[in-house]
Simulated assay, not measured.
Amino acid sequence: MTTPEKGGDVLTDERTEEATDYRYDPGDEERFSHYAPKDKIMQAMIEGTPVRALCGKLWVPSRDPKRFPVCPVCKDLYENVVQNDD
Rank of each mutant, 00 (worst) to 15 (best):
D28I: 09
Y22V: 05
G7Y: 13
K6L: 13
V70Y: 01
P65M: 03
P26D: 15
R15H: 12
D76C: 07
L77R: 12
P4T: 00
L54I: 05
E5A: 12
Y78D: 02
V81I: 15
T16D: 08
D39L: 10
V81H: 10
S62F: 04
D25E: 15
G8A: 13
T2C: 06
Y78C: 01
G7S: 10
A36E: 03
F68L: 04
Y24A: 13
L77A: 04
E79Q: 14
E29R: 08
V51C: 04
R67K: 12
T3Q: 10
K66Y: 00
E29Q: 12
Q43R: 15
D9Q: 15
Y35W: 08
L11C: 10
T49W: 03
K38H: 11
Q43C: 11
T12Q: 14
P72V: 05
M42Q: 13
K66V: 00
K66I: 00
P72D: 06
L58V: 13
T12V: 15
R31Q: 12
K40A: 13
L77N: 03
D25K: 15
K57H: 05
P4A: 05
C55G: 05
E47V: 07
V73E: 08
Y24H: 10
R23K: 11
D76T: 12
D25H: 14
E79W: 06
G8L: 07
C74K: 05
Y22R: 10
V60W: 00
G27M: 10
V70L: 09
K6F: 15
G56P: 04
R31T: 08
I46W: 08
S62Q: 11
D25C: 07
T49Q: 06
C55V: 08
T20E: 08
F32P: 00
I41P: 02
G7M: 10
C74A: 09
G56M: 07
D13N: 14
R63F: 05
Y22K: 09
F68C: 01
E47R: 11
T2N: 08
R63G: 01
T3S: 10
V60L: 00
D21G: 01
D85C: 11
P26K: 14
F68W: 09
V70S: 02
R31N: 10
P37A: 09
V10E: 08
A36L: 12
R67Q: 02
A44D: 01
E29A: 09
E47N: 14
